[in-house]
């Protein structure tokens, strides 16, 4: 089982009516691997994360997580569509951080971080608080634990969101353009936290990002998406240093010129 990748997209397609967002995607992500997904808007890159988080249903193919099918389950040796119970069991391995934070506005930073550990994992409040305090400390927000989201800056909210996701002890973390909604001066503090958890936690990480510098320095592999397909993938050195595909070159030139 351990020779299976952490995440496998097997012939996965996603369509909205006549529009094909992802076209027969095949992608493996290894244990502990850190993969950045880049590409122009509308290339389907965010959809990859949203399907993995079960926020979008897939139309074709099978999604595997940690050696088990997530969108389907084995029954009498055949793959059948998964039940809610099965999906929830597999989904427990995945955490996600959103572009727009999506913190719960009626709960404090601490409240946000202990809610799901208590209701979903069944932790005792004291245990959950202890763990949440450690995580808030790691993202540098111990002092803000009793603040409501509306009292925090965007960067602080996003760091709470990261702590909240980690509190569920996922094996896989998804980052969906987590710095896109931030003022430029706040981007650094969030990236700093992501670097830190990359170092200190044994996590498989998958991120959609526009921060090319960060993708280059942080990831093991970079995937360039174009029109619902992986157009080119490879090590950051290959993709940024010597892109083989014309589309990749055009995209990187456009991004670097704007940046």
């Amino acid at each position: 089982m351990n020779d299976m990748p952490m995440v496998r997209f097997e012939n996965v397609s996603k369509r909205y009516g006549a529009l094909t967002v992802l076209d027969n995607l095949n992608l493996d992500i290894g244990r502990g691997e850190k993969v950045s997904i880049i590409g122009p808007s509308g290339s389907g890159k965010t959809t990859v994360l949203r399907m993995l988080m079960t926020l979008e249903a897939i139309n074709d193919g099978v999604l595997w997580v940690d050696g088990e099918p997530m969108t389907h389950m084995m029954q009498n040796g055949k793959l059948v569509p998964a039940t809610t119970k099965h999906i929830r069991r597999i989904r427990a391995k995945i955490g996600m951080v959103f572009q727009s934070f999506n913190l719960f506005p009626h709960m404090t930073a601490m409240g946000n971080c202990i809610e799901a550990p208590i209701t979903v994992l069944g932790l005792k409040r004291s245990e959950a608080e202890e763990r949440a305090a450690e995580l808030l400390d790691m993202v540098g927000l111990s002092a803000k634990k009793d603040h409501y989201p509306s009292q925090l800056s965007g960067g602080q909210q996003q760091r709470v969101a990261i702590a909240r996701a980690l509190a569920m002890r996922p094996k896989i973390m998804l980052f969906d353009e987590v710095t896109s909604a931030l003022d430029p001066e706040l981007v650094g503090e969030v990236l700093q936290v992501i670097r830190k958890i990359g170092r200190e936690h044994d996590l498989t990480m998958l991120m959609v990002t526009h921060q090319m510098g960060f993708a280059k320095e942080f990831s093991d592999r970079v995937c360039f998406f174009y029109q619902g397909k992986i157009c080119e993938q490879g090590s950051p050195a290959e993709i940024f240093g010597n892109p083989k595909n014309e589309r990749t070159r055009q995209f990187l030139n456009a991004v670097l010129e704007a940046g």
Partner: peptide
């Protein structure tokens, strides 16, 4: 209630009843 609140609750693996009771209805 904003869509993102539902999505965050799914990402935290809550059940539908938990989302409604703890996240959506209070808001």
């Amino acid at each position: 209630v904003a869509r993102g609140q539902w999505e965050a609750s799914i990402a935290l693996n809550m059940s539908k009843a938990q989302m409604l009771r703890r996240i959506i209805l209070p808001q």
